[in-house]
C-alpha cells in the first residue's frame, strides 16, 4: 500500500492530494483576505478559505460539519460581511498609512509566532487527549454516517440543549425588537413621557425620525457597523443624543457627510 509515512502523517496518496489541495485553498484565501485592497475581494477570498476548510472536514469524514461550514459560513456569514461592506460603502479605500496603534503589528507578529510554536510543540510533544480517542468512529460504521449519528443525539442525549436553543432564539428575537424599535426623538430625553411602544407618537419631528432611522441603520448595539453608535460611543462626555449628527447629515442630503462619518468607523 503506497503512502506517506512520517511522525505526524500516515496517509494514502488520495488523502495527501486532497489535503494539499485544500491547504493551498485555505492559505491562498487567507492571504487574499488580508492582501486585497478591496474589501469585497477580501470577503470573496474568505469564501475560498472556508471552502478549503470544508474540504478538510470532508477528508476527515465529517460530512455534516462540512455541509454546515459551506452553508453557514460561506453562505450566511460572508453575505453578512458583504452586506456591511456595501452598507458602509465599497468605493472607499482604507487608510493603511496612519497606524492608530503603532505597536500592534509587531505585537501581532510576535503573538502569531508564539502561538504557532506553542501549537507545534504541543502537537508533537504532548499526549494530553486521553479521554475517548475517537468519538466519530462508531458513527462511521452506521448507516447514514455522522449525519444520522448527530441527528440521533439531537433527539436523545442532547434533546434538552436542542430545545433550550429555542429559548435562546426567542430571547434574541425579543432583544432585536427591543433594540431596533423606534424611540422618541432625540433631545426630549427625560421629559418624554410618551409611550415608546405606540408606533410613532405623531408630532412634528416625524420626518426627522424616519431620517434618523435610515441613517442609523443597525444602530442599536452598533456591533453590526451602524454609523451612529461606534463613532459616538467613545465620546462619553458628549451630551448630544445618539444619531443627532447622522440625522442632520441625512437631512442635508449630502452623501459626502455620511461618507465621512463612515470613514471614521473604518479607520
Amino acid at each position: 500500500m503506497p503512502g506517506i509515512h512520517g511522525p505526524l502523517m500516515a496517509a494514502t496518496y488520495p488523502d495527501a492530494i486532497m489535503f494539499v489541495v485544500s491547504a493551498v485553498l485555505v492559505l491562498a484565501g487567507a492571504i487574499g483576505v488580508i492582501a486585497s485592497r478591496n474589501p469585497v475581494h477580501s470577503a470573496l477570498s474568505l469564501v475560498m478559505t472556508l471552502f478549503g476548510v470544508a474540504l478538510i472536514f470532508l477528508a476527515q469524514q465529517a460530512d455534516f460539519i462540512a455541509a454546515v461550514q459551506v452553508i453557514v459560513y460561506a453562505g450566511a456569514i460572508v453575505v453578512l460581511f458583504l452586506f456591511v461592506v456595501m452598507f458602509l460603502g465599497v468605493d472607499r479605500l482604507e487608510n493603511l498609512v496612519v497606524e492608530p496603534l503603532r505597536f500592534q503589528r509587531v505585537l501581532a507578529l510576535g503573538l502569531v509566532a508564539l502561538s504557532v510554536v506553542g501549537m507545534l510543540l504541543l502537537g508533537v510533544g504532548a499526549h494530553w487527549a486521553i479521554g475517548a480517542h475517537s468519538v466519530t468512529a462508531p458513527a462511521l460504521n452506521q448507516p447514514g454516517g455522522d449525519v444520522a449519528a448527530l441527528g440521533k443525539s439531537v433527539f436523545t442525549a442532547y434533546l434538552l440543549p436542542f430545545e433550550a436553543t429555542a429559548a435562546l432564539l426567542i430571547i434574541a428575537i425579543i432583544g432585536a425588537v427591543v433594540l431596533t424599535r423606534r424611540q422618541p426623538a432625540a433631545g426630549e430625553e427625560g421629559d418624554a413621557v410618551e409611550d415608546t411602544q405606540g408606533a410613532g407618537g405623531g408630532g412634528a419631528p416625524a420626518q426627522e425620525r424616519s431620517n434618523q432611522a435610515d441613517a442609523d441603520g443597525v444602530d442599536p448595539d452598533g456591533a453590526a457597523g451602524g454609523q451612529g453608535s461606534p463613532r459616538e460611543a467613545p465620546s462619553r462626555s458628549s451630551r448630544g443624543a445618539p444619531g443627532e449628527t447622522d440625522s442632520r447629515a441625512a437631512e442635508d442630503g449630502e452623501p459626502g457627510t455620511v461618507r465621512r462619518a463612515g470613514e471614521e468607523v473604518l479607520r
Partner: peptide, 13 residues
C-alpha cells in the same frame, strides 16, 4: 438587552 433598554441614554448603549 436589558442593559441597552434605556436607549435614550447614551450610557445605556
Amino acid at each position: 438587552v436589558l442593559a441597552a433598554y434605556d436607549r435614550r441614554r447614551l450610557a445605556s448603549g
